[in-house]
Design a protein around this nucleic acid. Structure first.
Length: 228
DNA sequence: ACATTAAATTCGA
DNA sequence: TCGAATTTAATGT
């Protein structure tokens, strides 16, 4: 049984649930911690939970045909993921790896499907979420195509402050340059240079162990579609 | 890869 | 429980 105020803190979508749905979620949700480096779920495995990141940072990645690891999305505290595979009842199409010690809130498949059928608010929320994530995947493909490393890092950052997926996020991002490099697909020193450059442009402020976004619009617009 | 700096932890009072 | 000393983590080049 999870406390009501805690549930509201870790699951923004729960706040708009009808009371009967809220209570069921309260009863069924569990939390689990994972050390840094843990593979939480591997490609092809069943992982029958809808999961939210309570603390920490995850990456969703797939192996391309050439064997290169491709980051599909960085996921940090506040985000919920996995609805696609749950609704289709299939195995995961990607690996989920904890980049640092991470706590997940988990909702089992049965409860998830029950919510989908028995709450009016929940499917509405899911549509918005899925739509937003679709946009993210498209943006992520672009990160990998882009040559210019500063734009890659800027894009990777922009994905982490998406206000739809992270409605509670402030302008401070708890992320190291090492982690940012992994999400952007660049080395740590390269990420460092990119962060420095973005700082000089006034887009963000680099801090020890984190980054403060100063100008979200310019971060978003950074290196906006050139050619495809 | 190495030097620097910030933070976290340990330890002695 | 305070703070100085040490170790670990993150950053800058």
């Amino acid at each position: 049984m999870i406390e009501a105020d805690r549930l509201c803190r870790i699951a923004h979508w729960a706040r708009s649930l009808e009371p009967h749905a809220f209570e069921r979620v309260q009863a069924e949700m569990i939390e689990r911690r994972y050390p840094a480096g843990t593979t939480i779920c591997e490609f092809g495995e069943r992982f029958d939970y809808w999961a939210g990141v309570t603390t920490g940072l995850l990456t969703m990645r797939a192996l391309s045909r050439t064997g290169k690891e491709v980051t599909l999305a960085g996921i940090h505290a506040g985000a919920w993921f996995g609805e696609g595979t749950l609704l289709k009842k299939i195995a995961r199409q990607y690996d989920i790896v904890a980049l640092r010690p991470t706590t997940l809130a988990l909702l089992d498949l049965e409860t998830f499907l029950w919510l989908f059928e028995n709450s009016a608010a929940f499917p509405r929320y899911l549509v918005v979420q899925i739509n937003e994530r679709l946009g993210q995947f498209i943006a992520q493909v672009e990160i990998d195509r882009r040559l210019d490393t500063t734009s890659r890092v800027a894009r990777a950052l922009a994905l982490l402050v998406n206000p739809t997926l992270y409605p509670d996020a402030g302008d401070y991002l708890d992320i190291t340059q090492e982690e940012l490099g992994q999400l952007a697909g660049v080395s740590r020193p390269t990420a460092n240079q990119a962060v420095k450059q973005l700082q000089e442009l006034g887009v963000l402020r680099a801090e020890y162990g984190g980054i403060t976004i100063r100008d979200l619009d310019r971060l978003r617009a950074f290196g906006e579609d050139r050619e495809l």
